[in-house]
Nucleic acid binder design. Structure first.
Lengths: 197, 197, 197, 197
DNA sequence: CCCTAATCGAGACGGTACGTCATGTCTTACA
DNA sequence: TGTAAGACATGACGTACCGTCTCGATTAGGG
């Protein structure tokens, strides 16, 4: 759903007409992220357009909804943050480290936790957005975690990833327990056991 | 958040005036459930009121939003469905059975999966509803699962429940893999390993 | 197109539900008239709703456009202004008096001339409004003028009215000459001649 | 407001650069006229540009609005149609003939009546266009009619023209009666009487 | 025969108003 | 007092059109 940066590329469909404004794109992404982080509830397409100094139509020309903007902004500003795992140490420990560092990004007061929760929620109501959400955010992060696992059959490794991210999302969404180190270790232990079974 | 059936007992706050119509309550719950199952996107408070042959105010007098109605309807029609676990057999097997039977309720084409996803999504946006959602649906099911586990320390058992339900919700929400028997077994195996660690 | 005051009457289709708010109706009419008189160009449905302290939907529930509001407001505030003609004196003089007094209502700086021009213009683009415009404003005024004429065949009298009002509207719309006493007398003379021919 | 054909003569402000495309000008005028005659309501600058195979800027470089285009197209295609009056016969008859032939151009189903009504309407809302409208269409036709009148004082002749054209526009704009021969004769009779008074 | 400059088709841009939708509250008359 | 009906204030939505701007490509004289 989010559009790629207007690098046009070889698939660019036409070369005539005014080019898409990269300035406007960046302004929109920045405005959306700032407003959404401050107060998602009052963030509207209008408010984003106004703060970005942009016409509403310019937003709707490139994004189908404010959620797509926020997703794209999140990806752009945080793409580098996918934690690189360490190669050394026992499996359970490596998983626990990865998980704990991911937890840390969700827990802080100014973290993106609320945004991710809201996007996950929106994906439940909008199938088109769900595809973008899964393909651009969920699956890449799954792949990063999968690469940490050398052992086990494929389906076990998939289940291990589900177990780890599932445990994370569940506490993030239900808020009945903390996303702390101890939890990370327990999940990692269980995942490692699954892979060795 | 959902109100109890009107036979509220001696705590009923008023004794005068026209009594709450149980008929209307049932009509509203039934209408909400039917509309929501057919097409959640077009289900509005107005549409529920119209189909139930009821004034909108009658709805707002007793429920704060359509989501509370759906939650109450779901609880009322499905309360009995919380799977009773078997007491015999090895732990992993008992967990797998519980999980698989829960999966079965979510997978079918006319199942409540979509509704539960939508309610989980709404809970992310509405703190008041989140409380009801957690207290009336999430936590009771956690307790049912907890009771299946005899071994392990408390925190490990909590984590095991998170792992199991987390794995379930994750696949339910992201739809990247099936909620099938094999998955149930893998999650159960991991949970059992965690409890024995 | 404009709705009658909510006197319901015997044709009222139902008696249930909240009654239409006469207060809101009056507020909307007053707001529309004031804004339109000050600056028609910046008068929008939103601005009327805001100034009247009313929701936009309340406007669209009862009027199809701001033009219908203005027309209704004009009729309500000016209905009494249809000049009653004198019965005495020669025909040409009576017509000239009527015309001159009508001119006077259109010429002043705070007159309704600009509004009437705008409504006449809008009627050219909107057939539904054109019907209301003709039936509620144009034709009643024609009838008032017709009643001043005792002599002549019917078709001559119609043509005489067209001549008088046509001459008036033409100068109002094209602004190539003044709507003054001299012009009123010339038109009245011609009309009287037509009736006696 | 409409621009003259591009052979601007020695007053052209520049001598270098690409010349204005007469082809584009003709395409625009033709496209505007065709679209406007078919359905004025959906005729936008974009639609004209698209149908003419022209960029929007090419339109705005030479015309201030779609209305100016339509006016220019109308003048170009119909300039020759200003009825030449006959010099012989009694005044009332000459006027009636002129008027009837003008009526004929407005009455047909594919006539320019709707366009003229729309332009008159637009002139009420746009002072700049009103000037072009009056100077290029209204006043020339007034002059043509004035020249038919030999008798009478100047102000009477002006009023007679107003009476004739006013009667015409009034029926055109309000559509409460036909623009037929009988009406033309009545107006002509009244105008002649005015001139002889 | 190139240089300079205005025009061309195309289409993205900032902006304004529109008319619709859903929410949650309120006011009726009736039971 | 509860109820069905339905009007109300609010506020976001997504669309339409406006008139301006910026592309690269053309197309003229003037040097």
């Amino acid at each position: 759903m989010p559009t790629p940066p207007p690098s046009a590329g070889p698939a660019g469909r036409s070369r005539t007409g005014r080019a898409r404004s990269e300035q406007a794109r960046q302004d929109i992404l920045a405005a959306a992220l700032e407003l959404a982080r401050r107060d998602l509830g009052t963030t509207t397409v209008d408010s984003i357009a106004h703060r970005a100094g942009v016409g509403k139509q310019t937003i709707y020309r490139w994004w189908p909804s404010k959620w797509a903007i926020i997703l794209e902004a999140l990806l752009e500003h945080a793409e580098r943050d996918i934690t690189a795992g360490t190669d050394s140490g026992p499996l359970a420990e490596r998983l626990a480290t990865f998980l704990a560092s991911t937890f840390a990004q969700l827990a802080g007061p100014d973290s993106d936790g609320p945004l991710l929760r809201a996007l996950m929620a929106h994906a439940q109501q909008n199938p088109a957005f769900a595809v973008a959400w899964r393909d651009l955010l969920i699956l890449p992060r799954r792949r990063a975690l999968l690469e940490l696992m050398s052992e086990g059959r494929n389906e076990d490794r998939e289940a291990a990833v589900d177990l780890l991210f599932g445990g994370m999302w569940y506490r993030l969404l239900v808020e009945h327990g903390p996303l702390d180190h101890a939890y990370a270790h327990r999940l990692a232990t269980a995942a490692a056991a699954l892979l060795k079974a």
